[in-house]
Design a protein around this nucleic acid. Structure first.
Length: 430
RNA sequence: GUGGCCGUGGCGAAAUUGGUUAACGCUUCUGGUUGUGAGCCAGACCAUUAUGGGUUCGAGUCCCAUCGGUCACCCCA
């Protein structure tokens, strides 16, 4: 609070012990599902060369133009420092890591199904569901070109929402951006249209006409949207390949009972997307309603120097998901328990206490046993035992120690307290 | 980057249209009682009211600046 104290960087939060169980719950739920589909974890650095993101995400995207944490590295003796940036998203790094480690070259390894998690950095103005350091769980697949993979990813997410208990408040929006060729054709038609209406568009949209015209489509400006009603639509410019991919996608989704709405204005802010794009959105989170988004990016690997490799992926925002499950009150309560058993130590019996607690921990490795070195009064220890969520309090006082027993007190159920001998503790607890 | 709102002890939250020792609840701690936790009772600790200036006899209450938070635009997970 004092102004002399050094505070965290704006938009970068600490995760406190009271919150961390929720994160662990969410992360393990997601990871379990991903692993049940055979996806494997990959980890890569938070810092990459700036050029990776410029080339991967696109020079004229907002992320690259104004939101990256970029700095110059210390230079070596003979070279000036190079530009580094803290990753604003995971896909470019993931592709780079796969390329560099030959995960996509060897024939046996051409197909990859990967996931990763970690912090991402974007210099935006913080608000609800938007931070400067935020966390994503990303999923990427490489080497699979059919729409069935797109569907698998959507199935994974749908299953996850159900598992988390938020499936009734999220909606799937899908769209297709078509192949590079059909997108290029559409782009010229769109630019022509936009130029005709240049005077009536909002400022942001005008500036995008030449730089990133597709982005005009999801402008929130009402007037612009009205004009857009008459704009050429991408659907009319799809080539056979794009169309086939999209219609297969839709019928597979139908067959799997995944509901979706087609949003022709859904274009996504990163340059690498093509064909399938999708977003899971909710209205429960205010302005930041997208909890998960992704799509196909068949051209990116090649763009970054690899051989042509089809790819699809998505990322979900951990903070937003947590906001959502908290908002909906679907966070399981028992995740906050930090102990199963609490050893209350009263009097000068520390040695015995360690002997017992270590014995229990090594005999029953899955039991969470808490005890407070440094003690506190008997009363306060009992309170801590209660707050920890433990079901059993083991009480070791000087009397007990002398008799070679501990008292077993049941905190949650109405069972008689009783004493057990030291060598019978394990039997009692298991 | 732009705009609105906000900033009182660990948390929540009072303070008559500026008036002088800054309520109260929760948490924490101590003691009592209950069966050693929960419950109940009593008591205790913790605030130069974000920071720095200014106006005033007097400011938590008004003004300015800074910092921080928040929501929205924008952008996106």
């Amino acid at each position: 609070m004092g102004s002399n104290n050094i505070q965290a960087v704006k938009g970068m939060n600490d995760l406190l012990p009271s919150e961390s169980p929720v994160w662990q719950y969410l992360e393990s739920t997601v990871i379990d599902i991903l692993q049940s589909y055979g996806y494997q974890e990959i980890r890569f650095p938070i810092l990459e060369k700036t050029a990776l993101f410029k080339r991967g995400i696109g020079e004229v995207t907002d992320i690259v133009e104004k939101e990256m944490y970029t700095f110059t590295d210390k230079g070596g003796v003979n070279k000036s420092g190079e530009s580094l940036t803290m990753r604003p998203e995971g896909t470019a790094s993931c592709v780079r890591a796969c390329e560099q480690n030959k995960l996509l070259f060897d024939r046996a390894n051409q197909v990859q199904k990967l996931w990763y998690t970690g912090p991402m950095f974007r210099h935006e103005r913080p608000q609800k569901g938007r931070l400067r350091q935020f966390h994503q769980i990303g999923v990427e697949t490489f080497g699979l070109e059919g729409p069935d993979v797109d569907v698998e990813l959507l199935l994974i997410t749908a299953k996850l929402w159900k598992e988390l208990g938020i499936d009734n408040v999220v909606e799937l929006q899908i769209n297709t951006l078509g192949t590079k060729e059909s997108r290029a054709n559409y782009r010229t038609a769109l630019v022509e249209f936009l130029n005709q209406h240049r005077g009536a568009l909002d400022e942001d949209s005008v500036s995008r006409i030449d730089r990133n015209p597709l982005r005009v489509l999801d402008s929130k400006n009402a007037d612009t949207q009205t004009i857009l009603n008459d704009a050429p639509t991408l659907m009319d410019y799809l080539d056979d390949e794009s169309e086939a991919h999209f219609s297969q996608l839709k019928s597979l989704l139908d067959s799997q009972g995944i509901a979706y709405t087609i949003n022709p204005r859904l274009v996504r802010g990163l340059d690498y997307y093509g064909k399938t794009v999708f977003e899971w959105v909710t209205t429960k989170l205010g302005a930041q309603g997208t909890i998960c988004a992704g799509g196909r990016y068949d051209g990116l690997v090649e763009e970054l120097g690899g051989k042509p490799t089809p790819a699809v992926g998505f990322a979900m925002g951990i903070e937003r998901l947590i906001l959502l499950i908290q908002e909906l009150n679907v966070v399981p309560k028992d995740i906050f328990r930090s102990a199963d058993v609490y050893l209350v130590v009263a009097g000068d019996v520390q040695e015995k206490a360690f002997q017992i607690s270590e014995h229990i921990r090594s005999s029953l490795p899955y039991i969470r046993l808490q005890m407070h070195c440094g003690g506190g009064s008997f009363k306060s220890q009992m309170k801590k035992a209660d707050k920890s969520g433990a079901e059993i309090a083991l009480i070791l006082g000087e009397n007990e120690a002398e008799e070679g027993v501990v008292s077993v007190k049941y905190l949650r159920e109405d069972k008689q307290q009783h004493s057990v001998k030291f060598d019978e503790i394990i039997n009692t607890l298991s």
